Simulated assay, not measured.
Amino acid sequence: MDRFADRIKARAQAYVTREWQRRGAFAWALTPAAALFGAIAAFRRATFALGWRERVDVGVPVVVVGNVTVGGTGKTPTVIALVDALRAAGFTPGVVSRGYGSKAGEPRPVTSASSPAQVGDEPVLIARRTSVPVWVCADRVACAKALRAAHDDVDVIVSDDGLQHYRLARAVELVVFDQRLGGNGFLLPAGPLREPLSRHRDATLINNPFERALPPWPDTFALTLAPGDAWHLGDPSLRRPLAQFIGARMLAAAGIGAPERFFATLRAAGLAPATRPLPDHYAFRDNPFVNEPVDAILVTEKDAVKLSAWRDARIWVVPVEATLPARLIALVVEKLRGRSPA
């Protein structure tokens, strides 16, 4: 029953995502609700812009990596790459996140050994890949303050998502899109936009594995994600170049916001896997691959953090490395160095 429900959910998500790319009957029928959503969101933004509600400075500059659309766009690999770039520039970064599905009512630290069910899958992945302090809480102001109290050497905080968490003062805003861009241009629920495309930001990153031209927006950069050698879930010391999977009977599965991005990355590497899109943040309560007649199953790192107790020897994890343009890194560093910590 659970597997049937998961497939229905995945199909429903795919249908809505498809309809959000065009202005069909589905979208037009929901425009009254979108107008109401837009009015409420605009009023909320205005309360901060007019000073009716206060933005909180947590004492160090904050870089928000977020999106104005619903669904995954590649924020997590961007955060990981940005943390590495900031360390290379001489900063000591920390990361705050809401932690999708997190059960943390109060600010809570995340380590590489934390349970994804308790703190969210993406924060665990960030902690494993960066080894910097990572804290989760729905209240990002409280989260940032708790991180600083525990790590007084941290001099910049990267917020994984939180673009619409206006109470948290920020020095830099980076907005990440994938190949879907702003879809049909409508606000929720008629389209994928949480805020208008015209929303101010310091820079835009386009995660586009299909190599389409960048939109003519100011300060817009390409986000390059390159797959690395796959590692074995049961023994991470075992590594295989993706080319070694060519010709094998394989399945690619992804429980991320846009599974097709992962599949496109594998195809670009010369693979031709069967594919299994799963709902974003798929919980993997049991092994959905038990009856798959394949020799290898390729999954994302985000999914892999939830599979550590499994013993399916066919599962290999495909990491991706994000490359940030040097001009973007320079832009962020310049803005950070132009702000004195409180």
Rank of each mutant, 00 (worst) to 15 (best):
D2H: 09
K9E: 14
Q13A: 08
F26T: 11
W28H: 07
P32N: 07
A33K: 01
F37M: 10
G38S: 08
A39E: 07
A39W: 13
F43R: 13
R45L: 12
A46D: 06
F48C: 03
L50D: 13
E54K: 15
E54N: 09
V68N: 09
V68I: 15
V70P: 04
G71C: 14
T73G: 15
P77R: 12
P77K: 10
P77V: 10
L86F: 09
G94S: 13
V95Q: 05
V96L: 05
G99Y: 06
G105C: 07
V110W: 10
S114E: 09
P116V: 08
P116G: 10
A117Q: 10
R128Y: 03
R129V: 09
P133Y: 01
A138L: 03
A142K: 01
A146C: 00
A149Y: 01
G162D: 00
L168G: 05
L168I: 07
V172S: 08
L174N: 06
N184R: 14
N184E: 15
G185S: 14
G185M: 14
G191F: 05
G191R: 01
R194V: 11
P196G: 01
T204H: 04
T204S: 07
P209D: 12
F210T: 05
P215Y: 06
P216I: 07
W217D: 08
W217C: 03
P218R: 08
D219Y: 08
L223C: 13
A226Y: 04
A230C: 12
W231M: 06
G234Y: 02
G234W: 04
Q244I: 00
F245T: 03
A248Y: 00
R249T: 07
A253Y: 01
A258C: 01
E260A: 15
E260I: 06
F263L: 09
T265C: 11
L266G: 03
R267K: 15
A274L: 13
L278H: 02
P279E: 11
P279I: 08
D280M: 12
Y282Q: 03
A283M: 12
F284D: 02
F284A: 01
N287G: 13
P288L: 01
P288M: 01
V290E: 14
A296W: 10
L298R: 04
L298V: 05
L298E: 02
A304C: 12
K306T: 00
W310Y: 15
A313T: 14
I315R: 01
P319Y: 11
L324R: 06
V333G: 09
E334N: 12
K335G: 03
S340V: 14
